Amino acid sequence: MKYFYSFIVVVLFQMTFAQEQAMFYFDNNKFELNNTETAKLQKWISENSASKILSITGSTDEVGSSGYNDTLSLKRVGYIFNQIQGKVNIRADFKSISLGEKGATSANKAENRKAIIHYLLEKDLDKENEVLGIKEAEPEVIIPEDATLEEKVKLSKVGMKIVLKNINFYQNTFATMPESQGTLYDLLFIMQNNPELKIEIQGHICCIDKDYRNLSTDRAKQIKRFLVYNGIQDYRVKTKGFGVSQPIHPIPEATPEQAAENRRVEIEILSKTR
């Protein structure tokens, strides 16, 4: 079973409402339990075979050097682990925490010589990640390259970027060429039919070392002008120019095709309802 030891200054493990803990106490300078505590541990094991252990924390009193106490609490954790291994379920990312004398929180030295098992009861295992504050990874969104712009926007999540295909400008200007009209009206249609959709239009240029004339920003603003002129509220459309700071291919580009891919307009989804 994979586990590792961590030496820390403060307690790393924050207990939540559904986590349980069991404490076992050691005699002075001992890392094995006496007969009374051994019986207590065995009883706990028999009652918790279906529970799941999250971590074990060991501590000592303040007698002795800090180095000695660190080692002693480490041995206490290891002893408890060896007793429960194979008898109680243990998380794959189980943590073994050695506090040494830093775990001495009681004025009674005997109460500081302990190991604490943090665990979940069987009834709480169905919400294990929720209890531990672990968010399940969302499935990766795969958008087909040949999907329409409307389909891409529908499939996208907030933060995703979509290249606007066939948006072209006259050389060294922000005036769009006639072949751009189809994509512009597609975008307008999408904005009209998704009133909660907010986007940022992002301009990129190619072929030079710096956007001296801020052309990438002007091109993004030109797309916004089209949308606003046709009734889209100003606040729903932001603009930004990236110049040549985010090329798809290294500059200078090796081919005209690479230059065309660097010279692009994208939209980033800022908010949407569906």
Rank of each mutant, 00 (worst) to 15 (best):
I142T: 12
T57A: 13
C207K: 04
N230Q: 06
K2Y: 10
I208F: 00
G100I: 09
I97H: 07
E145D: 12
L74T: 14
K210T: 02
D93I: 05
N193Y: 04
N230E: 04
K114A: 13
Y79H: 05
E111P: 12
C206W: 02
S271I: 06
S59K: 13
V88E: 08
M160K: 07
T239R: 01
E200N: 04
S51K: 09
K154S: 12
I53P: 03
D61W: 05
S271E: 08
K43L: 12
L215C: 02
G241F: 00
M191N: 01
N214L: 03
I45N: 08
K43H: 09
D218Y: 14
K75C: 08
E145S: 15
G159E: 09
D218W: 13
Q83V: 03
A259P: 00
E136C: 07
L188A: 11
N48D: 14
H204S: 06
A175P: 02
E140C: 02
P252Q: 09
Y212W: 07
E62V: 12
N112I: 12
N35M: 11
G103F: 07
N108L: 15
T71K: 05
V141F: 05
Y119N: 09
T60V: 08
L125E: 08
I167N: 01
T148F: 05
Q83H: 04
E122Q: 14
N172Q: 08
K165R: 04
E196R: 10
Y119T: 07
F24Y: 13
H118W: 14
K30V: 05
G67K: 11
S156G: 12
Q171R: 05
F81D: 03
N168G: 00
K240C: 09
R236D: 01
T38G: 14
L132T: 12
T217R: 15
S245C: 00
L132Y: 12
T239W: 01
Q83R: 06
L270F: 08
